[in-house]
Nucleic acid binder design. Sequence first.
DNA 1: GCAGTGACCTCGT
DNA 2: AACGAGGCCACTG
Length: 110
Amino acid sequence: MGSINPPSSFYDSVWRVVAQIPVGRVTTYGDIAAHLGRRGAARIVGWALKDAVGGDLPCHRVVNRNGVLTGRRHFETPHVMAERLRSEGVTFVAEDQVDLDAHRWRPGKR
DNA sequence: GCAGTGACCTCGT
DNA sequence: AACGAGGCCACTG
C-alpha cells in the first residue's frame, strides 16, 4: 500500500497478487483472473507463474479449481511444490491435491 | 501483423 | 456420474 505502480502488463498484475498470498494459504487461477477482471484469462495466470518459477514469487501457492497442483510438473522438481506447501502447514486431501476448504485465500484481502 | 501456445474453466453428450 | 471438446485471453516468435 502507499506506493502503487501501474502494471506494465497482465503478468505484472498476476505476480503482484501472487506475491500477496499469505503463508499457509492457497488460491486458484480463476480467482486471480476474476480479481483482475478477466475470467477467461485463467490460463494466462499460469503463464505468468511459469515465468515466475525460480523467482521470489510463491507460485506453489496457486492451484487449480480442484485444488490440484497442476503446475508441479513445471517446477524444478515435481515434488517441490507439494513439499513447500506442506512445509507451510497446508493440508493435503490427496498426494497432489490440497485442502482448498481449509486454506482457500482470495485476492484483495491480503 | 499473423499464428501458435498454454500451470484453466465451462458446457455438452 | 464421467468423459470429451471448445472457448477464452494475453504473451512470444
